[in-house]
Design a protein around this nucleic acid. Sequence first.
DNA 1: TTGTAAGCGTTATCAC
DNA 2: GTGATAACGCTTACAA
Lengths: 347, 347
Amino acid sequence: MTATLADVARRAGVSTATVSRVLNGNYPVAGATRERVLDALAELDYVVNGPARALAASSTDVIGVIVNDVSDPFFGIQAGGLQREVAEEDLLAVICNTAGSPSEELKYLSLLLRQRVRGIVLTGGAREDAEHEAATAKLIRQAQAVGTRVVLCGRPAPAGVEAPCVVFDNEAGATALTRHVVEMGHERIGYVAGPRGNTTTTARLAGHRAALREAGIRRAASPIVHGDFSRDSGFDAAMRLSRADGDVTAIIAANDLMALGVMAALRRAGTEVPRQCSVAGFDDLPSASDCAPALTTVRLPLESGARRAGRIATGRDGAEDGDAWLGAELLVRDSVVRPGGRARRAR
Amino acid sequence: MTATLADVARRAGVSTATVSRVLNGNYPVAGATRERVLDALAELDYVVNGPARALAASSTDVIGVIVNDVSDPFFGIQAGGLQREVAEEDLLAVICNTAGSPSEELKYLSLLLRQRVRGIVLTGGAREDAEHEAATAKLIRQAQAVGTRVVLCGRPAPAGVEAPCVVFDNEAGATALTRHVVEMGHERIGYVAGPRGNTTTTARLAGHRAALREAGIRRAASPIVHGDFSRDSGFDAAMRLSRADGDVTAIIAANDLMALGVMAALRRAGTEVPRQCSVAGFDDLPSASDCAPALTTVRLPLESGARRAGRIATGRDGAEDGDAWLGAELLVRDSVVRPGGRARRAR
DNA sequence: TTGTAAGCGTTATCAC
DNA sequence: GTGATAACGCTTACAA
């Protein structure tokens, strides 16, 4: 077994209180005793017992992060940024994959709650469902009651909870993107939306529709199909879209992963991108610049947003200033050109 | 504050021991009392105090995972698989990014050690440095001494440590890949290796060299430069390679990320891939199939390997059967063609 | 089947 | 400055 505080105290000829003091440096200790304790600590290879400390001090060194799936870069980037941020305070990050399942989300929320983590960051869009929202709200309030800081990153706070939010401007980003496609001269534009009943899906779709409306594009000329934000669902969606009435000259996907799937499907079908069909995405994941043609998309400050959320969760940043809005930036690359046109530039 | 076991016990008119029993279901409890306890539990919204339980039972519900960087898909995929695996036992996964820094690795090792996590999985190549190896070994042994299961995934165990390893056959994979490039007729082949002093770099490089040797290719015709496994370092490496003596007709990168960087650099330089220069990668990340031309690479079973490691770390799988070797599979796609040749097939 | 009580290894409040 | 010592909330012999 490992040495305990008592072992160290005995060896150094002091009380456990003193050892605790030199360990935490929160109370004055005489230089000489301090040295002796330090020596004993080293000789015994003492390692603090985290759970014991957590119990006594009623606070842990852990932050919980709830994501859909870390292996999806959209979440991986956020998880990475958050981990790096909290690491600066020597805190640990536990990452939970919900696979988008509301019940998993609740399960992890309570698992984190039981661990008495210092803070919890919920990322990604939330399920738009009153019952689930209420259940989430209850757990969040319970967490807050035991002193856990809860932060929402990329989703609104459920009704009835007061919690800081880091919000990405999905709607404005989507409007800017669709507006760009329209300005390039497209009038028949397919849209691959995210899964139904998801706040992110809703926001991006709303932005898209706003741009269509302002351009006076008829609904019939702008078919919408739903995917689930995965690459494969984008592939399938593109197939459905091309079977739909009236060929579109551009397809906008609600995220880059689906856009990649769309491009693969078009390629497979022998449709040349962007000459015969333009494609656009959303998020600006690293692969968006490595695919060919490079993807026109919308950049979201995922890493810095997550870091911000992390700082709030650790208490480093105050949450009093209300929600943090982070802008989205249109990134014009090579995958969107004028209908029947050529690539914007050679690469 | 939250309700404690004592609160529940009082409410149900039983002792804390009984409540603990129904909670853990490890001792018989009469149906009637059981019901009363369950009711009390629900009425008070009781939530177990993880740290207290961990202290008393001296075991936590957490598994630690050490990676270079979760936002790198190579690690993100492993982290995701591992998290999903341990979730099946209702365990939490704490993810630590070391950014490849040995000192961070040691720091996290002891942070996890202090948390008394159930298991620790170390992923990715290890630093080949005697001093660091010894320090790691010491911490691992210390962890094992407190009952923490340590598993290595994608790296050998440090000298003097007895620990289960999940190993990817990097060397054989690299040999197969270079052999393929050679068989396509290339004789001047550039290689972008990983960072020096890393076990993965060494293994892949060894495999590459073995294939060159068996083909009788001179060292002068096969320049080697080092990157750090990041996309940008691949970009830089390609620039250095093209400035090197004697133009190569193919560039093999030690991982897909660097291969993507190489392709971007070649594109930028106006070199057409694969017609003027073939490119190959390693890992088979999702983006390898979405870039154009699709990348010829080597597939590593990252997800299943990580799950396997997770199962060993949780004690679900025994570790007695020695190291688990996972094969690497050559994936021939479109980025490698005969020198001066055309794409293997249209996509 | 249930209760009592002794830990588990810290932290923190008092005294001294 | 330093030492006792009482929490912290749970598990688990040991009794009953």
